[in-house]
Nucleic acid binder design. Structure first.
Lengths: 156, 156
DNA sequence: CTGACTGCAAAACATTTGCAGCATA
DNA sequence: TATGCTGCAAATGTTTTGCAGTCAG
């Protein structure tokens, strides 16, 4: 199932519409992002591409991520309050995140009823939503088991 | 209603428990934060304190915000993908955010049913939630009216 | 008194940007 | 061929940190 087909077209059209060019770097970035599953940051891409023998500068990575963000193909959030974290968006899919503050892991969840309530809230406020990020921070089941007590603490 | 009383005690206890001291600066920060309503960033505090004749360095502001965050009295989120944004947490209160990407405004909303669904999700995953931030980005009603079409776009 | 705290200024970090040469349409 | 694009390295802006003097307990 060549799932990225629609996305590829969407990106190509987006570039064309804006009078932008389909360069080797943009294609490499796109392929790399849509070849994998989910979260990554700008540096991950630099490393992964380099591993594949494709050298793309960090600046171009950021520039391209902006484009992909603009055309709605990737989302950009701050999961652990650190750097930007990106993830590919599959058309029509949406999910939210449980972020473990202990191991840094991310569990995705989908809850249609939350989405509905969100929409209702937006309607109530006359707010035209474009994206929403919903993250719940805490300690995941494994870390709770491993640690007994999530009395984290003050390592920094 | 001296609402901040519990919070004040909570902070004092927290400091004591950690063997930390109740300094003039920490008190000033605490008072300043709990004297106002909601969102602020580190710099706001520097400015506001300076306006009150209390000079606290930016470094100390960050250090104290860390403490307040650690003891659960303030939350720390990235609302507009920029710097950290803090807000005081009132015990037992919780709200979420509609963030306008056009004017930068923030509308708060409370939706108990979303909270409930969140809790259900956490239970399902055995996830011990500590905080959750739920932000919906888009264009607020005023900006929609002002701009006609939110065809933002490529200003940069 | 002592150990923790503060302010300063420099460091660290992610992200953005100016510019000169390169590549796509 | 003409723009737009890329890489580099320097700039930016926020947050963090080392250090010497200061203060709370």
């Amino acid at each position: 199932m060549p799932e990225a087909v629609d996305e590829r077209k969407l990106f190509a059209d987006f570039l064309r519409r804006r009078g932008l060019k389909t360069t080797r770097e943009r294609t490499a970035l796109f392929e790399e992002i849509f070849a994998t599953h989910h979260h990554f940051d700008a540096d991950d891409l630099v490393v992964r591409l380099r591993g594949n023998g494709k050298k793309v500068s960090r600046a171009t990575v950021y520039r391209t991520l902006d484009l992909l963000y603009d055309c709605g193909l990737v989302s950009r959030v701050r999961l652990n309050d650190e750097k930007y974290r990106y993830e590919r968006l599959l058309i029509g899919e949406h999910h939210d995140h449980l972020v473990c503050t202990s191991c840094g892991g991310v569990i995705e969840f989908v809850e249609a009823r939350i989405e509905e309530l969100q929409e209702a809230v937006c309607r109530k406020h006359g707010f035209a939503a474009t994206t929403h990020s919903h993250q719940i921070r805490g300690v995941c089941a494994e870390c709770q088991a491993r640690e007994g007590k999530p009395r984290g603490g003050s390592t920094a």
